[in-house]
Design a protein around this nucleic acid. Structure first.
Length: 323
DNA sequence: TGCCAGGGTCTTT
DNA sequence: AAAGACCATGGC
């Protein structure tokens, strides 16, 4: 399986370094390219060969920079800046990155089934080694999904960026500022107006404050969902929150709990991705999608994620053509 | 203007 | 369970 990481201990201003081994079917470059397309520098920044992200640990905001190693296994090097870290913190950071990049999963079965699937084949070949990149925080995953409900991806990005830059903390590194998503204790104490000023709808402001409130009070936790027997139960718990419907719940389960069976089947992006991949004149119906998804059994989330990835390139090509 | 956008709630069949 | 009405907000 995965080897243990090496921790070099606290060093000077150049930061501590953690090394991480990676499994088969992992390509850091593919993951970085996806982040470069999807994150737009909101919480994750792609700079050269590195992926930078702010991270709060023991109440301290840190910056981690991740690079792929050139040699053989293609392991990862994580540089940590902002504080001296001890072995326990190094373990936490390693765990964060493992979850973020979904490193524990054996992707061989998915690659095999995707090779046999007419919808997935060209995506799994083109993006081989891409992992489902989500967010280890349930609170952040839910907020991210709620902000993105029923609006264009570009407008969603603007809203996310405003929320993050207005209310989030940041870390300064080499003259640039890297933002963290505002913690639940911050959002729980915002007013509706604080957020509608950023052009969030009244409803979304209410939903976000409620999610933050339940997180602060401890009645909404990731462990609680992980302890449940099925993803249906987790989805049911989440949809009990006002503003969290089937799409948002499945999105959060997919990107935070990393359940490969989570399936935001109502997602318009998924519909468009299928349409473009197959060259259909119209978007597929839910019934048609269910038929395609029969062969994805157990890997619906990964299938969705790879289809979304294809859409990013398609959108870019369309934009280029206009220019 | 009208329709769409990586939906939700509530009501009705 | 599934479908329809109505909602909210900005972009093109």
């Amino acid at each position: 399986m995965l080897g243990k990481s090496d921790f070099n201990g606290a060093v000077d201003g150049s930061g501590s370094i953690i090394r991480l081994e990676v499994p088969d079917y992992f390509d850091f470059g593919q993951c970085r390219e996806h982040l470069a397309h999807s994150e737009n520098g909101c919480l994750v920044t792609v700079k050269g060969d590195g992926v930078y992200k702010g991270l709060r640990l023991n109440g301290i905001p840190l910056l981690i920079r991740i690079f792929g190693e050139e040699n053989r296994g293609g392991g990862l090097r994580i540089h940590v800046h902002g504080a001296d870290i001890d072995a326990a913190m190094a373990t936490d950071i390693e765990e964060h990155v493992r979850q973020w990049f979904d490193l524990e999963r054996d992707l061989a079965p998915f690659n095999a089934l995707a090779e046999r699937d007419e919808l997935l084949r060209r995506h799994v070949r083109r993006y081989s080694g891409l992992r489902m990149l989500g967010n280890p925080s349930l609170y952040e995953s839910l907020c991210w999904a709620i902000i993105g409900q029923q609006i264009t991806a570009s407008f969603a990005f603007q809203l996310k960026q405003r929320v993050v830059r207005t209310f989030g903390e940041s870390v300064l590194f080499e003259g640039e500022r890297y933002y963290l998503f505002p913690g639940p204790e911050v959002v729980a104490n915002l007013t509706i107006r604080d957020m509608t000023e950023l052009k969030l709808s009244q409803k979304k402001a209410e939903y976000l404050i409620e999610v933050a409130r339940q997180t602060v009070e401890g009645s909404l936790t990731k462990d609680q969902l992980l302890a449940m027997e099925s993803i249906e139960q987790a989805v049911k718990r989440l949809t009990a929150i006002r503003g969290v419907g089937a799409w948002t719940a499945n999105y959060a389960v997919m990107l935070c709990l990393r359940d490969p069976q989570a399936f935001p089947i109502a997602d318009v992006g998924l519909h468009r991705a299928i349409q473009h991949t197959l060259g259909l004149a119209r978007k597929p119906t839910l019934e048609e999608i269910r038929r395609y998804a029969v062969s994805w059994e157990g890997w619906e989330a990964y299938a969705t994620f790879y289809l979304w990835r294809g859409l990013e390139d398609h959108a870019e090509i369309s934009t280029d053509e206009l220019a």
